[in-house]
Design a protein around this nucleic acid. Sequence first.
DNA 1: ATGTCCGCGCACCGCGGA
Length: 258
Amino acid sequence: MKIATYNVNGISARLTVLLRWLQETQPDVVCLQELKAPQEKFPAEALLEAGYEAIWQGQKSWNGVAILSKVGKPEEIRRGLPGNHDDDQSRYLEAKVNGLTIGCLYLPNGNPAPGPKFEYKLRWMEHFAQHAASLLASKEPIILTGDYNVIPTELDAYKPERWVEDALFRPETRAAFEQLLAQGWTDAIRYLHPKETIYTYFDYFRNAFGRNAGLRIDHFLLSPNLKDKLKAAGVDREARSWEKSSDHAPVWIELEDA
DNA sequence: ATGTCCGCGCACCGCGGA
Protein backbone atom coordinates (compact mmCIF):
# COMPACT_ATOMS: atom_id res chain seq x y z
CA MET A 1 0.00 0.00 0.00
CA LYS A 2 1.36 3.35 -1.07
CA ILE A 3 0.47 6.47 0.90
CA ALA A 4 1.44 9.98 -0.14
CA THR A 5 1.29 13.53 1.17
CA TYR A 6 1.26 16.61 -1.03
CA ASN A 7 0.98 20.27 -0.14
CA VAL A 8 -0.64 21.49 -3.36
CA ASN A 9 -0.59 25.25 -2.64
CA GLY A 10 -4.07 25.83 -4.07
CA ILE A 11 -6.03 22.86 -5.38
CA SER A 12 -7.78 24.88 -8.10
CA ALA A 13 -4.52 26.17 -9.54
CA ARG A 14 -2.94 22.73 -9.11
CA LEU A 15 -5.65 20.44 -10.48
CA THR A 16 -3.90 19.60 -13.76
CA VAL A 17 -0.61 18.83 -12.03
CA LEU A 18 -2.37 16.87 -9.26
CA LEU A 19 -4.29 14.69 -11.74
CA ARG A 20 -1.15 14.02 -13.77
CA TRP A 21 0.77 13.02 -10.66
CA LEU A 22 -2.05 10.72 -9.46
CA GLN A 23 -2.23 9.12 -12.89
CA GLU A 24 1.52 8.56 -13.10
CA THR A 25 2.24 7.37 -9.55
CA GLN A 26 -1.07 5.76 -8.49
CA PRO A 27 -0.85 6.12 -4.70
CA ASP A 28 -3.57 4.28 -2.76
CA VAL A 29 -4.09 7.05 -0.23
CA VAL A 30 -3.20 10.75 -0.51
CA CYS A 31 -3.22 13.50 2.10
CA LEU A 32 -3.45 17.00 0.64
CA GLN A 33 -2.73 20.32 2.33
CA GLU A 34 -3.20 23.98 1.48
CA LEU A 35 -6.32 23.51 -0.61
CA LYS A 36 -6.91 27.29 -0.47
CA ALA A 37 -10.49 26.64 -1.47
CA PRO A 38 -13.86 26.83 0.30
CA GLN A 39 -15.68 23.55 0.99
CA GLU A 40 -17.88 23.84 -2.12
CA LYS A 41 -14.99 24.46 -4.52
CA PHE A 42 -13.25 21.14 -3.90
CA PRO A 43 -12.91 19.24 -7.25
CA ALA A 44 -14.52 16.04 -5.95
CA GLU A 45 -15.87 14.98 -9.35
CA ALA A 46 -12.56 15.31 -11.20
CA LEU A 47 -10.89 13.24 -8.47
CA LEU A 48 -13.63 10.63 -8.59
CA GLU A 49 -13.11 10.31 -12.33
CA ALA A 50 -9.42 9.76 -11.56
CA GLY A 51 -10.45 6.92 -9.25
CA TYR A 52 -10.28 8.64 -5.86
CA GLU A 53 -12.96 9.06 -3.23
CA ALA A 54 -12.29 11.96 -0.89
CA ILE A 55 -13.17 13.76 2.29
CA TRP A 56 -12.01 17.32 2.81
CA GLN A 57 -12.10 20.27 5.14
CA GLY A 58 -12.02 23.44 3.08
CA GLN A 59 -11.63 27.07 4.05
CA LYS A 60 -11.92 30.25 2.05
CA SER A 61 -8.52 31.54 0.86
CA TRP A 62 -6.26 29.63 3.23
CA ASN A 63 -5.32 26.24 4.63
CA GLY A 64 -7.60 23.27 3.92
CA VAL A 65 -6.84 19.52 4.06
CA ALA A 66 -8.16 16.44 2.28
CA ILE A 67 -7.77 12.67 2.30
CA LEU A 68 -8.13 10.77 -0.99
CA SER A 69 -8.35 7.02 -1.40
CA LYS A 70 -8.80 4.48 -4.15
CA VAL A 71 -9.07 1.61 -1.68
CA GLY A 72 -12.44 2.55 -0.21
CA LYS A 73 -13.85 5.88 0.88
CA PRO A 74 -12.05 7.35 3.90
CA GLU A 75 -14.27 6.98 6.99
CA GLU A 76 -13.99 10.30 8.76
CA ILE A 77 -12.97 10.15 12.43
CA ARG A 78 -12.55 13.83 13.19
CA ARG A 79 -11.93 17.26 11.73
CA GLY A 80 -9.87 19.59 13.88
CA LEU A 81 -7.84 18.66 16.93
CA PRO A 82 -9.65 17.75 20.15
CA GLY A 83 -9.55 20.54 22.74
CA ASN A 84 -8.80 23.15 20.09
CA HIS A 85 -12.37 24.37 19.69
CA ASP A 86 -11.58 28.06 19.21
CA ASP A 87 -9.31 27.19 16.25
CA ASP A 88 -11.18 28.17 13.08
CA GLN A 89 -8.40 27.15 10.68
CA SER A 90 -8.82 23.96 8.60
CA ARG A 91 -5.63 22.11 9.45
CA TYR A 92 -6.46 18.60 10.62
CA LEU A 93 -8.51 15.76 9.21
CA GLU A 94 -8.46 12.16 10.39
CA ALA A 95 -9.95 9.06 8.83
CA LYS A 96 -9.88 5.31 8.80
CA VAL A 97 -8.71 3.91 5.46
CA ASN A 98 -8.14 0.24 4.81
CA GLY A 99 -7.72 -0.48 8.52
CA LEU A 100 -5.26 2.38 9.06
CA THR A 101 -5.88 5.55 11.00
CA ILE A 102 -4.64 8.42 8.87
CA GLY A 103 -4.15 11.91 10.30
CA CYS A 104 -3.66 14.60 7.66
CA LEU A 105 -2.21 17.83 9.00
CA TYR A 106 -1.16 21.27 7.93
CA LEU A 107 0.82 22.64 10.83
CA PRO A 108 0.95 26.44 11.10
CA ASN A 109 3.95 28.15 9.49
CA GLY A 110 4.48 30.42 12.51
CA ASN A 111 6.37 33.28 10.88
CA PRO A 112 7.21 35.94 11.78
CA ALA A 113 8.79 34.66 14.98
CA PRO A 114 8.59 35.65 17.70
CA GLY A 115 5.02 36.94 17.65
CA PRO A 116 1.38 35.86 17.80
CA LYS A 117 1.69 33.58 14.77
CA PHE A 118 4.58 31.75 16.36
CA GLU A 119 2.63 31.43 19.62
CA TYR A 120 -0.26 29.98 17.62
CA LYS A 121 2.09 27.46 16.03
CA LEU A 122 3.49 26.32 19.38
CA ARG A 123 0.00 26.03 20.89
CA TRP A 124 -1.13 24.01 17.87
CA MET A 125 1.86 21.70 18.31
CA GLU A 126 0.93 21.18 21.97
CA HIS A 127 -2.64 20.20 21.05
CA PHE A 128 -1.30 17.97 18.31
CA ALA A 129 1.17 16.23 20.65
CA GLN A 130 -1.62 15.56 23.15
CA HIS A 131 -3.77 14.04 20.46
CA ALA A 132 -0.85 12.02 19.07
CA ALA A 133 -0.24 10.56 22.54
CA SER A 134 -3.86 9.48 22.88
CA LEU A 135 -3.74 7.90 19.42
CA LEU A 136 -0.64 5.92 20.37
CA ALA A 137 -2.40 4.68 23.49
CA SER A 138 -5.06 3.10 21.26
CA LYS A 139 -2.42 0.67 19.89
CA GLU A 140 -3.97 1.01 16.44
CA PRO A 141 -1.81 1.34 13.32
CA ILE A 142 -1.56 5.10 12.77
CA ILE A 143 0.05 7.44 10.26
CA LEU A 144 0.31 11.17 10.93
CA THR A 145 1.36 12.90 7.75
CA GLY A 146 1.38 16.27 6.11
CA ASP A 147 3.15 19.60 6.01
CA TYR A 148 4.62 19.91 9.50
CA ASN A 149 6.38 23.20 8.76
CA VAL A 150 9.23 21.82 10.88
CA ILE A 151 12.84 21.41 9.78
CA PRO A 152 13.81 18.63 12.20
CA THR A 153 17.63 18.83 11.99
CA GLU A 154 20.46 20.62 10.19
CA LEU A 155 20.52 17.82 7.64
CA ASP A 156 17.05 18.95 6.55
CA ALA A 157 17.91 22.43 5.27
CA TYR A 158 20.24 23.42 2.45
CA LYS A 159 21.78 26.20 4.53
CA PRO A 160 20.67 25.63 8.11
CA GLU A 161 22.46 28.74 9.40
CA ARG A 162 20.01 30.86 7.41
CA TRP A 163 17.03 29.32 9.17
CA VAL A 164 17.98 29.58 12.85
CA GLU A 165 15.63 32.54 13.46
CA ASP A 166 12.84 31.11 11.33
CA ALA A 167 9.70 29.61 12.85
CA LEU A 168 10.36 26.36 10.96
CA PHE A 169 13.73 25.82 12.64
CA ARG A 170 13.72 27.73 15.94
CA PRO A 171 14.75 25.72 19.01
CA GLU A 172 11.18 25.71 20.40
CA THR A 173 9.87 24.23 17.14
CA ARG A 174 12.55 21.57 16.92
CA ALA A 175 12.12 20.68 20.58
CA ALA A 176 8.37 20.24 20.12
CA PHE A 177 8.97 17.93 17.16
CA GLU A 178 11.58 15.95 19.10
CA GLN A 179 9.17 15.54 21.99
CA LEU A 180 6.61 14.21 19.57
CA LEU A 181 9.08 11.62 18.22
CA ALA A 182 9.99 10.71 21.80
CA GLN A 183 6.42 9.47 22.28
CA GLY A 184 7.41 6.57 20.04
CA TRP A 185 6.73 7.80 16.51
CA THR A 186 9.03 6.96 13.61
CA ASP A 187 10.00 9.62 11.06
CA ALA A 188 9.64 7.27 8.07
CA ILE A 189 11.88 9.10 5.60
CA ARG A 190 14.74 9.44 8.10
CA TYR A 191 14.33 5.88 9.34
CA LEU A 192 15.00 4.49 5.86
CA HIS A 193 17.43 7.22 4.76
CA PRO A 194 19.31 8.29 7.89
CA LYS A 195 22.10 10.31 6.25
CA GLU A 196 20.74 11.36 2.87
CA THR A 197 19.96 14.92 1.88
CA ILE A 198 16.24 14.79 1.18
CA TYR A 199 14.11 17.87 0.54
CA THR A 200 10.35 18.13 0.09
CA TYR A 201 9.98 21.89 -0.38
CA PHE A 202 11.70 24.39 -2.67
CA ASP A 203 10.56 27.99 -2.62
CA TYR A 204 9.62 29.70 -5.87
CA PHE A 205 12.40 32.29 -5.54
CA ARG A 206 15.82 32.27 -7.14
CA ASN A 207 15.46 28.94 -8.88
CA ALA A 208 15.54 27.10 -5.55
CA PHE A 209 14.57 23.78 -7.12
CA GLY A 210 17.19 24.05 -9.84
CA ARG A 211 19.85 24.69 -7.18
CA ASN A 212 18.47 21.96 -4.90
CA ALA A 213 18.08 24.66 -2.24
CA GLY A 214 15.31 22.97 -0.31
CA LEU A 215 13.93 21.96 3.05
CA ARG A 216 12.52 18.73 4.43
CA ILE A 217 9.28 19.79 6.13
CA ASP A 218 6.69 17.24 4.94
CA HIS A 219 6.82 14.18 7.15
CA PHE A 220 5.37 10.76 7.84
CA LEU A 221 5.14 9.72 11.48
CA LEU A 222 4.41 6.04 11.98
CA SER A 223 3.11 4.29 15.08
CA PRO A 224 5.45 1.56 16.43
CA ASN A 225 3.34 -1.27 15.00
CA LEU A 226 3.92 0.06 11.46
CA LYS A 227 7.66 0.54 11.69
CA ASP A 228 8.52 -2.96 10.52
CA LYS A 229 6.01 -2.78 7.69
CA LEU A 230 7.76 0.18 6.08
CA LYS A 231 9.21 -1.01 2.78
CA ALA A 232 10.18 2.20 0.99
CA ALA A 233 9.90 5.99 1.24
CA GLY A 234 10.76 8.83 -1.08
CA VAL A 235 10.02 12.16 -2.71
CA ASP A 236 8.52 12.63 -6.18
CA ARG A 237 10.93 15.37 -7.22
CA GLU A 238 9.78 15.03 -10.81
CA ALA A 239 6.41 16.62 -9.97
CA ARG A 240 8.20 19.68 -8.55
CA SER A 241 9.87 20.23 -11.93
CA TRP A 242 6.63 20.40 -13.90
CA GLU A 243 5.10 23.58 -15.27
CA LYS A 244 2.78 25.23 -12.72
CA SER A 245 3.97 22.96 -9.90
CA SER A 246 3.46 23.51 -6.19
CA ASP A 247 6.42 24.72 -4.13
CA HIS A 248 6.24 21.33 -2.36
CA ALA A 249 7.00 17.95 -3.90
CA PRO A 250 4.82 14.92 -3.08
CA VAL A 251 6.27 12.56 -0.47
CA TRP A 252 5.32 8.88 -0.21
CA ILE A 253 5.82 5.68 1.74
CA GLU A 254 5.11 2.09 0.91
CA LEU A 255 3.82 -0.29 3.57
CA GLU A 256 3.79 -4.04 3.47
CA ASP A 257 0.19 -5.19 3.31
CA ALA A 258 -1.17 -6.01 6.73
C1' DA B 1 16.40 42.67 1.32
C1' DT B 2 15.50 40.10 -2.52
C1' DG B 3 12.64 36.80 -5.07
C1' DT B 4 7.53 34.01 -6.84
C1' DC B 5 3.08 32.17 -6.67
C1' DC B 6 -1.86 31.80 -4.90
C1' DG B 7 -6.48 33.69 -3.88
C1' DC B 8 -9.17 37.69 -2.91
C1' DG B 9 -11.74 41.98 -3.92
C1' DC B 10 -13.53 48.90 -2.75
C1' DA B 11 -11.33 43.64 -9.00
C1' DC B 12 -7.90 43.58 -14.54
C1' DC B 13 -3.62 45.44 -9.82
C1' DG B 14 -2.17 45.40 -5.11
C1' DC B 15 -2.06 42.89 -1.01
C1' DG B 16 -1.42 39.24 2.71
C1' DG B 17 0.45 34.77 3.37
C1' DA B 18 3.83 31.51 2.50
